[in-house]
């Protein structure tokens, strides 16, 4: 098991390095110097000092190593446009935790309700209940999250006034409810769809019949024997799900004025703050890679065939 985890960890590290390399190359080819914007405000000597400070006068390889070191230690440089010379790490503070919080809530709700809906549909396979659940998850999958966001905002914030319409930092939790729900529709839908298909197949397998013939309770058969095996496949969509969450969050955060990274990302794109854009691209990739690492470790825990063969499916 440890060998397997170490291997996955190694792959994750290499992937992060490759992503950093791509971002670095992008930056290298970016026209102009970081000091174009500050033209006239600083002298040539000052520029030289800054060049030395950021190692811009050193060979490419050196600069790359420095870049990796900075990025990994959370020194992402400064923003040029949104807030001049504001360290990006400072801009991210609070924003990142808020976005991750909303994302994690949406993921949790999505997984939980998705699984319940999917299992339910699978057990009531080919009944009106199943069709209803399938229809629901189709709607969830095909309607973009901002539509839900607008609908929720209209009903619960504007009409019923149960929650604030826009993000209010004094009522943090309440403010995250609507964005969380709006974001969770798509994960609910995809998890429900996958778990339904997978549970139908798993519940039809011989080992479920053997488990039933042992006289185990229905719940034990479904969860301990069925769900655990179905999870192997359901896990595969966790990565793509995170991506759709991240893209969804950019719009949803804008709608509710949530001061999160999604919102910041849209902002940075609009005003062409490429340093911020690239930092966020790095953070999104890193999140994705961490997610995949988590998924891989989960595979190892759930599926002994992966664990013992060190990653190759037996």
């Amino acid at each position: 098991m440890w060998k397997y985890i170490l291997k996955r960890l190694g792959i994750a590290v290499v992937t992060i390095l490759i992503i950093l390399l791509i971002l670095f190359v992008l930056l290298e080819f970016m026209p102009g110097t970081p000091f174009d914007m500050t033209e006239g405000n600083i002298t040539d000597e000052q520029i030289e000092v800054l060049y030395a400070k950021y190692g811009l006068d050193k060979p490419v390889l050196y600069r790359f190593v420095l870049y990796v070191k900075n990025m990994l230690s959370g020194d992402f440089g400064v923003s040029y446009v949104i807030q001049n010379n504001m360290p990006i790490s400072q801009m991210l503070e609070g924003r990142l935790t808020l976005s991750i919080k909303i994302g994690a809530q949406a993921m949790l709700i999505g997984t939980l309700f998705g699984l319940i809906l999917g299992i339910f549909a699978a057990l009531k396979h080919n009944t009106p209940l199943d069709s209803g659940a399938t229809l629901l998850s189709m709607i969830g999958a095909s309607v973009p999250s901002y539509v839900f966001a607008l609908g929720l905002a209209y009903v619960f914030a504007f009409k019923l006034k149960w929650v604030p319409l826009l993000y209010n930092s004094k009522k943090e939790f309440i403010s995250t409810i609507l964005p969380t729900i709006a974001l969770s529709f798509s994960p609910i839908a995809s998890i429900a769809r996958y778990s339904r298909t997978e549970m139908i197949e798993v519940m039809d397998s011989d080992y479920i019949q053997l488990a039933e013939s042992k006289g185990l309770s229905r719940f034990v058969v479904i969860v301990r024997h069925g769900l655990r095996n179905a999870m192997i496949t359901i896990l595969t969509i966790m990565g793509p799900m995170l991506v759709s969450l991240m893209t969804g969050s950019t719009v949803v955060e804008s709608i509710f004025s949530v001061p999160g990274v999604g919102n910041l990302f849209i902002n940075a794109l609009q005003v062409n703050d490429y340093n911020v854009t690239i930092t966020l691209a790095f953070i999104f990739s890193a999140e994705y890679i961490l997610m995949m690492l988590f998924v891989d470790v989960m595979y190892g825990i759930i599926d002994p065939r992966i664990r013992v063969s060190g990653g190759k499916k037996a």
């Binding site: 080992y207 053997l210 006289g215 309770s217």
Partner: peptide, 26 residues
Amino acid sequence: IIRHYCGQRIAMVFQDPMTSLNPTMS
């Protein structure tokens, strides 16, 4: 039937031993 008969009084061995054991449980 499940609670009082299956497994306790009446037990079954299935055709395909390759698929009748749960692959994820020891």
